[in-house]
Simulated assay, not measured.
Amino acid sequence: MNASCEAQLRGYADLIQRWNPAINLVAPSTLNDLWNRHIVDSAQLADLAPAAGTWLDIGSGGGLPGVVVAICRPDLAVTLLDSDARKATFLRTCVRELQLPNCRVKTDRIERHPPAGVDHVSARALAPMPKLMPYVVRHLRPGGTAWLMKGENWKAEVESVNTSWHFDLREHPSRTQSGAAILELTDIRHG
Rank of each mutant, 00 (worst) to 15 (best):
L15T: 08
E111Y: 03
A22K: 13
M149L: 14
A123S: 06
V26P: 05
R86D: 03
N102C: 13
A146V: 08
P101N: 04
N2Y: 04
G59P: 08
A127P: 10
S178D: 14
S160H: 05
A116N: 06
S178K: 12
W19F: 14
V95M: 02
A77R: 13
L91H: 00
R141N: 09
T89A: 15
S29P: 00
Y12L: 12
W55L: 15
P128E: 12
A127M: 10
L9I: 08
S42K: 02
L45D: 01
G66F: 11
L76F: 04
Y12M: 12
T163H: 15
E159D: 14
R175C: 10
D47Y: 05
A180P: 03
H113C: 13
P101A: 02
D108R: 12
I39K: 10
D57M: 02
T93K: 07
M129C: 07
R124T: 07
C72K: 12
T186D: 09
H190L: 08
Q177F: 08
Q99A: 15
Q8P: 08
G11W: 11
D108M: 03
W147D: 12
Q17A: 14
P128Q: 05
P74T: 11
R138T: 09
T54S: 15
A116H: 06
V67N: 06
A7R: 15
I188P: 09
M129N: 08
R10G: 03
A156F: 00
V95P: 02
R86G: 08
W35Q: 15
D108Q: 05
I16Q: 11
H190E: 13
D168Q: 11
A27C: 04
G179E: 07
D41P: 06
I23H: 11
L91M: 05
C5K: 13
A51D: 13
L126F: 11
C5W: 15
I58L: 14
L126N: 13
W165I: 00
A181Q: 03
H172T: 14
L185G: 08
T145Y: 00
T54Q: 09
G62E: 06
L183R: 01
E184N: 04
V95A: 10
T186M: 14
E184A: 00
V78P: 02
N2P: 01
Y135C: 13
R92Y: 03
G66P: 00
P134S: 04
W19R: 09
N153H: 07
V137Q: 15
K87F: 07
R37L: 07
